[in-house]
Amino acid sequence: MDILWFGVFALLLIGYFALEGFDIGLGLLLPVLGRTQKDRDRIVAAMAPFVLANEVWLVAVAGVLFGVYPSIEGDVLFGLYPLVVSLLVSWILRDAGLWFRRRLDGRTWQAGWDWMICIGSYGLALSWGMALVALAGGLSGPSIGLLGLGGGLVIAAALAFHGWTFASWLLPGQVTGASRDGRALLASACVAAAPVAVLLAAAAPWLLDHTAPTGTLSVLSVIVLPFAPVMVGAQVWTWRTFGPRRAADRIPSFF
């Protein structure tokens, strides 16, 4: 059962990078791809229906970290204190940009929140890169350093590539000027998730060593696993509903 829950944990973290990765990536590219307000509206409208279904994977990661690896949850989060704080603040600012940008009509209001999406996305990508470098070093060194910054830039580049591919897949020839098929999107998802997948593989023995007792895992399994098909179904439904054929319609986006 500890293997099963490691699998769930790994799937959720990899899934977060593969899915939320393109939202963050498009946030990074927003000022570049969206030079006019109309273009930015179109980019945000493309990713908007997916954001709520994507970002929630990280909420689930944190929940499983607490439930399945309680003895290291505190150490990991506390060990990354400044990075977790900057990750959360960036995440909140990015989300605020999305939720608020269309609530008022003013040009300054919308452009201002678009910048907030971009800044928040940079904060997310850089915090993640630095956190992954710090975790790879076993939380022994300082959490913020040159090597960490390099990691942050690598993650930012990978997520930007994923975001660019997503836009080329959903809105072929429109925002990026390029068209990509589903296979290219899958490949860019793999690029976005590769760093964290490598780290998970390396950390697997350590995580398995710190799994919660069988009693706790049994309770989690009995209550959570029956919902797994619903969770998968809801995600698939999101992709079927808002995929490429439906994306170019004329319904104004809420975000």
């Binding site: 908007a48 229906p49 997916f50 954001v51 709520l52 279904a53 970002e55 929630v56 994977w57 909420v59 689930a60 944190a62 929940g63 499983v64 607490f66 439930g67 399945v68 309680p70 003895s71 949850e73 505190g74 919660a212 007792p213 009693g215 706790t216 309770v219 989690l220 209550i223 959570v224 919902f227 619903v230 969770m231 809801a234 995600q235 439904w237 999101t238 509903t241 808002f242 986006s253 809420f254």
Partner: peptide, 28 residues
């Protein structure tokens, strides 16, 4: 954590994960 973490993990997976996904489907 062996006890306190379980209901929190169940909340994120069995409730909020679905809530967020279905809210996205409802809004858009």
């Amino acid at each position: 954590g062996d006890i306190f973490g379980a209901p929190l993990a169940i909340e994120t997976l069995g409730a909020f994960f679905l809530e967020s996904t279905f809210l996205g489907l409802w809004i858009f």
